[in-house]
């Protein structure tokens, strides 16, 4: 389990839906990654060819959340509520669009016990 316990950077969440669902679930330890929600801000963050860009820019990628400096985050999160997989086309787009130093993390709900 990856736990971010000491954080000096903000966590940026995209969109209202993930924020509502995940901030609740994350705060009650349901997810495999604990986001530092005390230092959280909503922001429309999209990335195109490694550069932060406007929301909705054609061909850009928009992770559900990021952690670290807004221009070049350390981590980008894909938050899954349905099937716990990332599709190959999505993975390829992330590979092309995220900054080189940003690691993509897939977050899926814990199931069973």
């Amino acid at each position: 389990m990856l736990r971010i316990t000491k954080h000096t950077h903000k966590c940026w969440l995209n969109g209202a839906l993930p924020k509502n669902i995940y901030s609740q679930l994350i705060s009650c330890d349901t997810f495999v990654v604990l986001l530092p929600i005390n230092n959280l801000d909503g922001c429309h963050l999209s990335s195109l060819l490694g550069v932060k860009t406007d929301w909705g820019m054609t061909s850009s990628s928009r992770p559900d959340a990021t952690y670290g400096p807004i221009d070049e985050p350390y981590l980008a999160f894909e938050l899954k509520t349905g099937l716990p997989i990332i599709y190959p086309y999505q993975q390829t787009k992330y590979n092309i669009n995220l900054p080189t130093s940003t690691e993509l993390v897939l977050i899926v709900p814990l199931t069973g016990n």
Partner: peptide, 11 residues
């Protein structure tokens, strides 16, 4: 250079 996204035309 290693920090630049290799797909970007700027790179």
């Amino acid at each position: 250079l290693p920090k630049l996204n290799k797909h970007n035309p700027i790179t």
